[in-house]
Simulated assay, not measured.
Amino acid sequence: MEFSEIVEYAKSGLDIPKISSQSEHLAYLTVICILEAFRNRTINGAQAKNQKEKAEQFFHDARKQEADRLMVYRTYQQNTLKVEELLHEINKELQHQGADKGRVIDLSLHALEVLTGVKFKELR
């Protein structure tokens, strides 16, 4: 939802949808407070406009932070799945009588690389 839509919800006295993000809810409550202060003549038009502009900037900053956190979380999930697959491969290899120890080590190092984000040099 865009900030202008949030302002329209607040001006019209309508609640924003419950499925809105936390930053949208906070922006909505902020705009309601600004409108209320303006209507009660606690602040003048210029102050209300200034506060609304600040609220919009905070809203955009919060949206960017939410997107960044979501990207980190998705990367974490993807890496977790990769590590689970590697551990499954390690377990399969270890179940064989003549397990290939070199393959087990390679898979283990790869899992460690995925977990840490550090690429190890080839030793062989």
Rank of each mutant, 00 (worst) to 15 (best):
residue 77 Q to Y: 03
residue 91 N to P: 01
residue 23 S to P: 04
residue 110 H to N: 06
residue 48 A to D: 03
residue 9 Y to M: 07
residue 50 N to G: 07
residue 72 V to N: 12
residue 90 I to H: 00
residue 94 L to E: 06
residue 104 V to S: 01
residue 72 V to E: 13
residue 33 C to T: 11
residue 108 S to P: 02
residue 55 A to G: 06
residue 19 I to T: 08
residue 58 F to C: 15
residue 66 E to Y: 00
residue 31 V to W: 10
residue 25 H to S: 01
residue 39 R to I: 10
residue 101 K to H: 08
residue 112 L to R: 12
residue 110 H to L: 12
residue 80 T to F: 03
residue 70 L to Q: 08
residue 108 S to G: 08
residue 41 R to S: 13
residue 20 S to M: 02
residue 13 G to L: 02
residue 53 E to P: 00
residue 42 T to V: 05
residue 28 Y to W: 00
residue 83 V to R: 14
residue 51 Q to A: 14
residue 7 V to L: 09
residue 13 G to M: 00
residue 20 S to Y: 03
residue 20 S to R: 00
residue 82 K to A: 13
residue 98 G to Q: 11
residue 66 E to A: 07
residue 24 E to G: 02
residue 21 S to M: 02
residue 11 K to E: 06
residue 62 A to K: 11
residue 86 L to V: 00
residue 22 Q to R: 13
residue 47 Q to T: 10
residue 89 E to R: 15
residue 97 Q to E: 11
residue 80 T to M: 07
residue 24 E to C: 03
residue 87 L to D: 10
residue 91 N to L: 13
residue 93 E to V: 01
residue 18 K to V: 05
residue 115 L to H: 08
residue 32 I to P: 04
residue 106 D to S: 10
residue 35 L to Y: 05
residue 16 I to H: 03
residue 89 E to F: 11
residue 33 C to R: 15
residue 114 V to Y: 06
residue 36 E to S: 15
residue 49 K to C: 04
residue 79 N to T: 09
residue 75 T to D: 06
residue 55 A to C: 09
residue 79 N to C: 07
residue 16 I to N: 01
residue 77 Q to S: 05
residue 6 I to D: 09
residue 100 D to R: 08
residue 65 Q to T: 09
residue 102 G to K: 07
residue 87 L to F: 06
residue 47 Q to P: 02
residue 8 E to N: 12
residue 80 T to L: 09
residue 10 A to W: 04
residue 123 L to G: 02
residue 101 K to N: 10
residue 21 S to G: 03
residue 13 G to I: 00
residue 81 L to Y: 08
residue 120 F to D: 04
residue 45 G to D: 13
residue 62 A to N: 12
residue 63 R to P: 03
residue 94 L to D: 02
residue 99 A to Y: 10
residue 77 Q to N: 08
residue 62 A to H: 09
residue 51 Q to C: 10
residue 114 V to K: 05
residue 80 T to I: 05
residue 49 K to Q: 08
residue 81 L to C: 09
residue 81 L to E: 14
residue 47 Q to M: 12
residue 41 R to C: 09
residue 103 R to K: 15
residue 68 D to Y: 07
residue 6 I to G: 10
residue 9 Y to D: 04
residue 72 V to Y: 11
residue 110 H to T: 12
residue 85 E to A: 15
residue 51 Q to H: 11
residue 72 V to Q: 14
residue 59 F to D: 06
residue 91 N to I: 13
residue 2 E to F: 04
residue 43 I to F: 00
residue 60 H to N: 15
residue 115 L to W: 05
residue 86 L to E: 00
residue 53 E to Y: 01
residue 18 K to T: 06
residue 73 Y to M: 14
residue 75 T to L: 05
residue 9 Y to G: 04
residue 5 E to A: 13
residue 122 E to M: 07
residue 111 A to S: 07
residue 73 Y to W: 12
residue 122 E to C: 04
residue 26 L to A: 05
residue 82 K to P: 05
residue 17 P to F: 00
